[in-house]
Design a protein around this nucleic acid. Sequence first.
DNA 1: GACCGGTTAGCATGTTCATGCGAGGCACCC
DNA 2: GGGTGCCTCGCATGAACATGCTAACCGGTC
Lengths: 215, 215
Amino acid sequence: MTTTDRVKVALVEDDRRMREAFRVLIDGSPGFACVAAYGSLEEALHVPAREAPDVVLLDIKLPGMWGSEGVDLVLKRFPGSTVLMLTAFEDETRIIESLCKGASGYILKDTPPARLLEYIREATSGGAPMSPEIARKVVTLFSTFALPQRLDCQMKPQETRLLALLADGYGYQGAAEEMGVSINTVRSHVRSIYEKLQVHSQSEAVTKALRAGLI
Amino acid sequence: MTTTDRVKVALVEDDRRMREAFRVLIDGSPGFACVAAYGSLEEALHVPAREAPDVVLLDIKLPGMWGSEGVDLVLKRFPGSTVLMLTAFEDETRIIESLCKGASGYILKDTPPARLLEYIREATSGGAPMSPEIARKVVTLFSTFALPQRLDCQMKPQETRLLALLADGYGYQGAAEEMGVSINTVRSHVRSIYEKLQVHSQSEAVTKALRAGLI
DNA sequence: GACCGGTTAGCATGTTCATGCGAGGCACCC
DNA sequence: GGGTGCCTCGCATGAACATGCTAACCGGTC
C-alpha cells in the first residue's frame, strides 16, 4: 500500500510525547499515514504546499499562535485539506473561534484510538466529527442565539434575495445578472423594498434588514 | 428487564409503515423501548406528562404542525426529554429552526439501524448525535451564519462614527454636518474605510461592519 | 369576466457616490 | 529636525443610485 492510498494526516501538537504517541497510532494503522508532525503552527505553515495533507490534526493551545487562531491560515496554505481540532479542553470561545475559521471538527484528546481513526475517516468523507460533549455544546450554542425577532415587513422572495445581493456589495447591474432579470426590474424591487422598510438608501435598507434578521 | 431500565423512546412520524418499522426496531433491541408512536405532533402533545419518554424521535415534515416548529412545545411538555430530529431531508432552514428550538440532534432516516440505536444512546448520555452530512452543514453554518467574527480592521474613532451614520441612512452631506466637518473630509474617511474593509460600496461596508460587530 | 398582487420592463431626471489626484495642520517620538 | 499617523480640506469625473411615471403579463380570487 503506497502513501497515496492512505489518508495523509499532519499533526500539530506541542507536547512531544503526545505528538509521538499520535504519530505511532496513525502510522501504525492501515489506511492512515502521518506525513508530518510539528510542534507549532508557524512550523507547519512553512511546509511546501505540494505536501498538503488530507487532514490536519490541530491542537488548540500551542506556543506562539494558537491553533484556533490559525485554522484559516492552515486552510489558506492547504486549500484542499480538512482541519480537525484535537484538544484537551472544551473552551466555548475556542470552539466557536475554530469553527468560525473553518475547522471541520472538534475532537477531545481522550478519545479512544479506534474512535479517533474513525473520526479522521469521517472527516475525509465530508462529515464533521465531534466528540459528543463538543457536539452538545455546539448545539446548545445554537439555541442560545435564539431566533432573532424578525419584524413583519413581509418581504417577497425576490426582494429578500435582492437585499442579500445588495448587502454583499452587488450593484444594480450585478444583482440583475445574478437574478436573471433586467436592471429595471431590480429598480422596481428596490423601490418596493424601500417602501416596506421606510428607508431612502441602500445602506439604510441593508442595516435595517440585517438588524431585523431578514438576511 | 423492566421498562425503567430501558431507554424510553417516543416516535412522531406520519408515515405509518415507517413508524411501525421504527417501532419494531426499537422494541426489538435490548435496552430500548418504544413507549409511544404518533402520527402527528398534536397527538403527541396530548400525552400525560407522567409518561414522559427519555428520547423523542421527531419527524420534520408532519401533517399539521411541523416537527421543527414544535420542538419547543415538546420540550415544554416533557422537560426532561431529549429531542432528536429524524428526517429524510436536509433543509438548512429546518435544521436551524430545530436546533434553535432545542433539538439535541438531527439524524437522517437512511441511517443504518445499529447506528440509529447508537445515536439514541448517545443522546441520552449528553451527546448531540448528528448524521455526518448534517454535522458538516451545521459546522458550515457556524462559519457563515452566526459568527461574531471581528476582523482586525482597526477603525479609527471618526471612521467608526461615520460608518454608524452611513448605516443609519445619512448621506455624505448629512454625516458631514453631524460630525462637524466638510463633505470632503467625509469622502476621505469613506475612502480609508473602504480600504480597510476591502469593499467598494456603502452597502457592502455597512454589511461587513454590522456582521463584524463594529457598529 | 373582472380584479389584484407579484413580477417583469422601460425611460428620464436630478442627486449622490466612488475614486482619481494633491495638500496643509497637528501631535508624537526617535 | 524629520518621520509617521491622523484628521482635515479641496476639485474633478464617470458611474451608480433614488425616484418620478407608465404598463404588459400571469396566476389566483371574487
